[in-house]
Design a protein around this nucleic acid. Structure first.
Lengths: 213, 213
DNA sequence: AGTTTTATGTGATTTTTTTCACATAAAACT
DNA sequence: AGTTTTATGTGAAAAAAATCACATAAAACT
């Protein structure tokens, strides 16, 4: 349903690699440099750029500044993206204090929790009651939410978010959610990610080639 | 390099869906029930099971208990998996207090940090100096690590982990890491995940069908 | 100005992943 | 016991993703 998702995630990875290269003074990259820095195949880099209409200079590679600008435009980094956080538990709170989003022009503008003891409308990022969530979303026309509530509350919270006008969700709740087709949900499942690591470390699924003698 | 990675991550998702179904009293599932609960195609479920040698009953579907047991064996859930956490910052600390791992038989046995002010060998999960990390890994034969250190320290920390015998890493540091082929690294990039959501919400890349008019 | 070099951009190819579709076998029903 | 029903398991087909390979054009060098 969502086309070239891998290309989009790689764009993000290229961006991060480019910033790193830029920070050490590099001005120009070639597809193989960048591929190397991003851990992919050089043809993949060029193909991805082709998909998004990014072009470089024959023989001259890509000017990092220009390339970054094009990628950042594609990733909507030209203005601050306001996001709300729902669920101020363990993970939610870490995300609230996470400095990584800000440098990517993503700002958590408010958090919401069902537990009244956690509310604090005076905090740098105010924490309001979920009862106020729907009106906040509507009034501020928020389109993005980070969902970090317990599994049991996840689906109903999502329904509420969707009803209020949220169009994209990063979901940390350990449950697959249902939403209309025009809502984009990215499920970040920490247990699953770690279990995948465990599988490859302890299974012999990654034994190379055919087993011999 | 790592075969059927998607099948492995789906296994994890099936497990979680099955547990949920079990918790509400369901005893038996069919490939289409499970597919529905896990958000995939029924043929995908059967194909995945086929890959891992899991079989059900012709016409009778799958007994949840048996199925769960088989999946859990595949995912090495028969014993507690000891993991170390490196980097006790914002994200690291949230993971330390995250209750989700424990119910999956994953236990963070120790944490390490470069900042001496954060050390606490008396805590439920002791926090030691990184200087002690290598010997801890060797002595306890730890194979799994969660890496949540700042980008600048990530590669050298990884090198140290690998040298000490770590074979699988869940990496939260916002940088792609280099490691020998026999080390499995799973990169969880929070900015990237959120940027992907932003892309699909604000680009018109997901407009349906060919543009008309 | 002409030649050589070199890295892009993209069709073609290969590989991987997903889905289809149906033969098969077990259960349910008569 | 025989017939029908129904869901598995898997080859075959389709779709998607990654990689190859080369024509092309711009830069560098003579």
């Amino acid at each position: 349903m969502y086309a070239f998702k891998n290309s989009v995630t790689r764009l993000s990875r290229y961006k991060s690699a480019l910033k790193r290269l830029k920070s050490v003074g590099v001005v120009k990259v070639f597809s193989d440099n960048l591929a190397d820095a991003a851990g992919v195949n050089p043809a993949q880099v060029r193909k991805d750029f082709s998909v998004f209409g990014i072009s470089g200079n024959k023989k001259g590679g890509y000017q990092i500044d220009e390339l970054l600008a094009e990628i950042e435009t594609l990733l909507c980094k030209d203005k601050v993206q306001p996001v709300i956080l729902v669920g101020n538990g363990n993970i939610g709170n870490a995300l609230l204090n996470y400095t990584g989003f800000e440098k990517e022009n993503i700002k958590i503008v408010a958090a919401f929790d069902a537990d009244d003891n956690k509310l604090n409308s005076e905090a740098t990022v105010p924490i309001y009651s979920v009862d106020e969530m729907e009106s906040f979303i509507r009034e501020n026309q928020i389109k993005l939410a980070i969902l970090a509530v317990p599994a049991l509350a996840a689906q109903e919270t999502l329904d509420l978010l969707v009803k209020a006008g949220i169009k994209g969700v990063m979901n940390f709740s350990p449950i697959s959610l249902r939403a209309p087709d025009d809502i984009y949900i990215n499920h970040v499942d920490l247990e699953m990610e770690l279990e995948t690591v465990i599988f490859y470390v302890f299974s012999n699924a990654n034994a190379e080639g055919p087993q011999r003698g």
